[in-house]
Write a protein that binds this DNA or RNA. Structure first.
Length: 797
RNA sequence: CGGCGCGUAGCUCAUGGCAGGCGAGAGCGCUCGGCUGAUAACCGAGAGGCAGGAGGUUCGACCCCUCCCGCGCCGACCA
């Protein structure tokens, strides 16, 4: 709607202005300021009109009246209003209008002309509409609505409020809590604002001040919950000042009950600081993970407005303020607040609602200003952020929990909580103890879908954790969490969870292999000392040691995805593809109680034990399942190095009562270096075997005899392990020769069919199969193993 | 628009962050093959990335600077 506000012609300034426009201050034609608005109900609260000082405005004469509108909008406005032969009588910059006075369109009240950069030519300049910038630009290019003069009601919108404050206008808001006009609003008192809209339009039309109205679609803010349109009202609120220094020194809690004194400040004498100053100081002392959190928090505190802590809700923690019924004085001093606090401690905050003001105040309390003893209670409640911000004090200093202390070691939440919980906790912590309530703050990123977009139920791309847990279990969901770098945004989708499920199965299967091969192994009697173990078993433990070191460090620094990758890589490469594959021969064919087999089992037991401990925080259930199946836990009590026992040898009932494995046990850097080179050679052999397989020379690697020629350096290494090589490469025979230094290759591998026949017991090929009358289908190694089994009274297959 | 962050193979991550240096790595997945005593398993080989894009600094940049593009969080009486 377009409404005209007449110029107040009485003032000297107005006369001068009219003379400029029409040449004569006594010209009978009246001058009007033309405003446009989509919210008729805010007009009763109009106290001003804003124009943009940068724009050019024009005075348009039509039908004996003169209208002021933005120069660029003259044509569109004239067309829309069907003005009778409009013509421009003057042009002037917006700044010319500053501080002129109009009369309200129908009320006996001035409306002040003001300058504001928020005024646009696109319409929808009203603060109420919250149009975003790009959309506003589009709108400006297409349909124009508006006059370049913005009706301003400081009580009904942010921009209006701000400019109203600048010009010293009242913050006038004649709408009550129920959304109805108050009694002072002529003609419309008691009407709900939305119901009043058409009445106001009709009323203005009758008065002849409405020049045009039409239906107009535009954005308008709605309640996020009930979806109804909301209205803006400026209302009195309680704030906590961030810049005012405390008038009194903070009361310092003394260390009465043995709590760490450093938790509390004792700077009673120090000059009072503002909350903001304290916050900026404390932010430096907190460890932020990731580190950029410090800068984010600091920037936020720098530009933060005072904390509005009052909320108009019927539930919550009341603000313990009283108002004098006689003089209106707000009462909230230490004595009254402590009095209320004492009552709350006994009766909970419900007392605020159940007791009258008189019984919430100290006996005989009188208004410090007027001496009256009649008071009313504040009805606003505290911002719930204040509640959560107080959690550190409420929980950590509660006597209901043992072993807790303030401040907290760690706060962990999503990055959205910088402005939320991290902030409110900091404020309350500072108020209570002058210190940050946390030593470390860890933040995680957002969960996004496969395309990296935020999950929304409405977009249908959300993964419901509870659904997934129901199908696949919490262990796998936790494994997903840990597989991602939680400090950044994390992606989650069916495919990703599918992958994680597969890695879970791999880990579980790997440990199951170890446990399966520990059947009958009793760490107390069967374990082999580290120095007596076969070298590859010690190699496995040396690799495990590296993993332990890496995992413990990663846990310590919140690099959980590094934990995941280290453990998973260990399971797939070190164990499954290498160690397990190589020792299968020994586990399956050596005599059950042979030293060779027990050597491998000792390593397996240690590995399974360590994996259970390291996996425990992630695969909570699976780790316990592993734990229960460790031979040291199953029934018996383990030895010191037998695993499944904590330091001191005590077997714990649950892995979650056990410590992380200790680094350094299997440490052997030189051994690992040798085996790095051995495995490099193994890769060359494996490639050669693959070629032989492709050409149908062999199928299984055990069908092969490998002829290796190596230059001096490699030769010497391999020579040292000559008898081990067939097991490391998993072939039946290996021969080794020296390669000329002039040769191009460091290592040359030829694959042939293995000599002899396949041993039906161990599947290796041997020229000696058939030599042994007692076991004609078996090789020399198996004959020996079978002999041992028989000697132990066991049953040889 | 303002504050902060992210963008390396199909996927999850290394390397790279104020110590820039030869042809950017791993595992999974995929393709092909082997094994059949971890079998709703296991082993191997292979293909696969111009490090979001464009400039700049430099003898030399994934790594430093600028701009652009894409994405996320915050700027809400939602916790």
């Amino acid at each position: 709607m377009y409404v005209k506000f007449p110029l107040s012609e009485d003032s000297v300034e107005a006369k001068a202005f009219k003379r400029e426009l029409l040449g004569d201050e006594d010209d009978p034609r009246k001058v009007y300021f033309l405003i446009w608005t989509t919210t008729p109900w805010t007009l009763p609260a109009n106290l001003g009109i804003a124009v943009n000082p940068q724009f050019e405005y024009a005075a348009v004469e039509a039908g004996g009246e003169v209208y002021v509108v933005a120069g660029e909008l003259v044509e569109t406005v004239a067309a829309k209003l069907s003005l009778n032969e409009p013509h421009i009588v003057a042009r002037f910059p917006g700044s010319r209008l500053d501080l002129l006075e109009a009369r309200h369109a129908w009320l006996d009240r001035p409306s002040l002309l003001m300058l504001g950069d928020h005024v646009t030519l696109g319409g929808e300049a009203d603060a109420e509409t919250e149009l975003d910038v790009s959309e506003a630009r589009d709108r400006r290019a297409t349909g124009k609505a508006g006059t370049g003069l913005v009706h301003t009601a400081p009580g009904h919108g942010h921009d209006d409020f701000v400019i109203g404050k600048t010009y010293g206008l009242d913050i006038y808001c004649p709408v009550d809590n129920a959304g109805r006009f108050t009694a002072e609003v002529e003609h419309f008192a008691g009407e709900g604002v939305f119901e009043a809209n058409p009445h106001i339009v009709a009323f203005l039309r009758e008065r002849g001040v409405l020049l045009f109205d039409e239906p107009y679609a535009h954005r308008y803010p709605h309640c996020w919950r009930c979806k109804n349109p909301v209205i803006f009202r400026a209302t009195p609120q309680w704030f906590i000042s961030l810049d005012a220094a405390a008038r009194d020194a903070v009361e310092v809690e003394r260390d009465e009950d043995g709590r760490d004194l450093t938790n509390y400040t004792d700077n009673e004498e120090a000059a009072p600081e503002s909350l903001r100053a304290m916050a900026l100081r404390e932010i430096k002392n907190v460890e932020w993970v990731p580190a950029w959190g410090e800068e984010r928090m600091r920037n936020m505190q720098k530009g933060r407005p005072d904390w509005c802590v009052s909320r108009q809700r019927v539930w919550g923690v009341p603000i313990p303020v009283f108002y004098c019924s006689a003089c209106g004085e707000a009462v909230a001093d230490r004595a009254t607040i402590n009095h209320v606090a004492d009552i709350f401690e006994r009766e909970t905050t419900d007392a605020w609602y159940s007791r009258p003001a008189s019984s919430l105040l100290p006996e005989g309390f009188k208004c410090p200003k007027c001496g009256s003893s009649e008071f009313t209670k504040e009805t606003d409640i505290l911002d719930v952020w204040f509640d959560s911000g107080a959690s550190s004090v409420a929980v950590l200093e509660s006597e209901r929990y043992e072993g807790l202390r303030w401040p907290a070691d760690v706060y962990l939440e999503g990055g959205d909580q910088f402005r939320g919980w991290f902030n409110s906790s900091l404020m309350v912590g500072l108020a209570a103890h002058d210190r940050a309530p946390y030593r470390t703050v860890v933040t995680h990123g957002w969960t996004l879908d496969a395309q990296g977009r935020a999950m929304h139920k409405s977009a249908g791309n959300a993964v419901a954790p509870e659904e997934f847990v129901k199908d696949s279990g919490a262990d796998i969901l936790r494994l997903w969490v840990v597989s991602s770098d939680f400090k950044e945004d994390m992606r989650c989708s069916d495919e990703i969870l599918q992958r994680v499920s597969e890695t879970y199965r791999k880990i579980r299967n790997t440990v199951r292999f170890a446990l399966g091969n520990l059947d009958g192994f009793d760490p107390a009697t069967d374990a082999v000392g580290l120095n007596e173990m076969q070298e590859i078993d010690r190699w496995a433990l040396a690799e495990l040691d590296v993993v332990i070191t890496r995992v413990l460090e990663a846990y310590r620094t919140y690099e959980y995805h590094a934990v995941y990758h280290a453990l998973y890589n260990f399971c797939t490469v070190t164990l499954s593809a290498r160690y397990f594959d190589i020792i299968k021969d020994r586990l399956y064919t050596s005599a059950p109680k042979s030293h060779a087999r027990r050597s491998a089992q000792t390593a397996l037991n240690y590995i399974a034990d360590a994996l259970a401990r390291m996996l425990a925080p992630i695969l909570v259930f699976t780790a316990d399942e592993i734990w229960e199946n460790l031979p040291g836990v199953k029934g018996r009590r383990g030895g010191a190095d037998a695993g499944a026992a904590d330091e001191g040898g005590a077997v714990t009932a649950s892995v979650h009562l056990a410590e992380f494995p200790v680094a350094g046990v299997g440490h052997d850097a030189r051994l690992r270096e040798r085996w790095v080179r051995l495995f490099e050679a193994r890769e060359v052999v494996l490639r050669a075997l693959e070629e032989a397989r492709t050409s149908k020379l062999i199928g299984s690697g055990l069908e092969a005899r490998v002829r290796i020629a190596a230059k001096r350096k490699t030769y010497e290494l391999l020579e040292h392990y000559r008898e081990e090589l067939r097991y490391v490469f998993i072939v039946s025979q290996v021969s080794l020769t020296l390669l000329e230094e002039a040769d191009a290759e460091e290592l040359r591998v030829r694959v042939e069919r293995a000599d002899g026949r396949k041993c039906e017991r161990c599947w290796n090929y041997s020229v000696r199969v058939g030599e042994f009358t007692r076991y004609p289908a078996v090789c020399e190694r198996c004959v020996e193993a079978l002999g041992e089994i028989e000697a132990e009274g066991g049953e040889a297959e």
